[in-house]
Amino acid sequence: MPKISVGIAMILLIVGNMIAVFSDALIKTLSDDVAVFQFVFFRQLTAVLILLPFCLFSQQQGFFHGLKWHVLRGHIWLCGAIFMVIALNAMPLATANAIFYAAPLLMLPLAMMLFQEKLTRHSILVAVFGFIGVLIVVKPTQINWAAIAALIVALTMAANNVLIRKIPKHLNVFQVLLLTNVVGMPAAFALAWWEGQPWDWSAMLTATGSTTFILIYAGICVLVYRAVDASKIASAEYSGLLGAVAVGILWFDEVPDLSLVIGTAFIIFPLMWLAKVEAKKKRLLKQFDAELS
């Protein structure tokens, strides 16, 4: 596994979140009467088709080690995908994404409980400011079923990212993503069959595009959360909100209001401050090591 610094990990997460916005935007183009379970099954099917060629030429030894963790993450991923379609079809893109970015705050207690990670006062402070920003964007008095669906998405994102640490280290990114989607396909197909809607294969093209973007994001998450403590980099997840605002304006004519602007400031500026603090800490550590040697 390549070594990744905190700074590089945060940059990768920022890029990943910007890319993930386009996956959300494609989902938002679906009609209101789309068969949700069927579309989610299409996403998982296209993910397997995209990933399979990369995995055929990878080392297969111990491919199914830690299968229980893949099964758990796969069904959490499936749950998140379902509620994401529901939330994005009912809310403005930037508003839905603002709620999704409650995930870094949820990751902090999860990482502490599962891996005994120590929370620094800086990471806690940034997470709290970020969550305040989310509340400003959402406006608690306007919380409805769509907002609840978005909060469930945030919880599934947090759980999936934290549980990456349970995945065997010898599996590469493509193998992890393939297993995550494969193990959830039976449940996805069963839900699509139970839904009882005629199969609409025209949605496959949208599913393919959405899957491609989200796989890039998920791959980055596997890479960085394996290498760096979640509490140190989780705040970088907030950065995609800027991309969601821009895409919402350009693609869906969703002009942000003042609360979105203020909330975004609460999310982004503390993130920039945290990056500066981490960089200073790294410089001091290097200086200290040099003095010892």
Results as ranks from 00 to 15, higher is better:
residue 154 A to T: 08
residue 161 N to E: 13
residue 215 L to N: 02
residue 32 D to Y: 05
residue 89 N to G: 15
residue 83 F to T: 14
residue 100 F to Q: 01
residue 71 V to Y: 05
residue 275 A to K: 07
residue 16 G to E: 04
residue 105 L to F: 15
residue 91 M to L: 15
residue 69 W to L: 06
residue 241 L to M: 13
residue 67 L to F: 15
residue 170 H to A: 08
residue 153 V to S: 06
residue 193 W to C: 09
residue 139 K to T: 01
residue 71 V to I: 14
residue 150 A to K: 09
residue 174 F to L: 06
residue 284 L to Q: 12
residue 105 L to T: 12
residue 35 A to W: 10
residue 171 L to Y: 12
residue 292 L to K: 13
residue 265 A to W: 02
residue 230 A to N: 05
residue 95 T to H: 14
residue 240 G to P: 08
residue 204 M to E: 05
residue 286 K to P: 06
residue 239 S to A: 06
residue 283 R to Y: 14
residue 98 A to D: 02
residue 70 H to Q: 15
residue 254 E to N: 07
residue 201 W to F: 08
residue 165 R to K: 14
residue 267 I to D: 04
residue 111 A to E: 06
residue 19 I to R: 09
residue 140 P to V: 02
residue 269 F to K: 10
residue 102 A to S: 07
residue 173 V to H: 00
residue 38 Q to V: 01
residue 166 K to D: 13
residue 267 I to G: 05
residue 72 L to C: 06
residue 230 A to E: 05
residue 146 A to E: 03
residue 204 M to F: 15
residue 64 F to H: 15
residue 108 L to I: 05
residue 257 D to N: 11
residue 173 V to E: 10
residue 161 N to C: 05
residue 5 S to G: 07
residue 64 F to T: 08
residue 289 D to V: 12
residue 140 P to R: 09
residue 272 M to N: 08
residue 88 L to H: 11
residue 132 I to E: 02
residue 38 Q to I: 00
residue 164 I to Q: 10
residue 108 L to W: 09
residue 171 L to T: 00
residue 64 F to N: 11
residue 80 G to D: 04
residue 60 Q to S: 12
residue 244 A to H: 07
residue 142 Q to C: 06
residue 220 I to T: 00
residue 195 E to R: 09
residue 15 V to R: 00
residue 288 F to A: 14
residue 149 A to G: 08
residue 81 A to V: 07
residue 223 L to N: 01
residue 81 A to G: 12
residue 16 G to C: 02
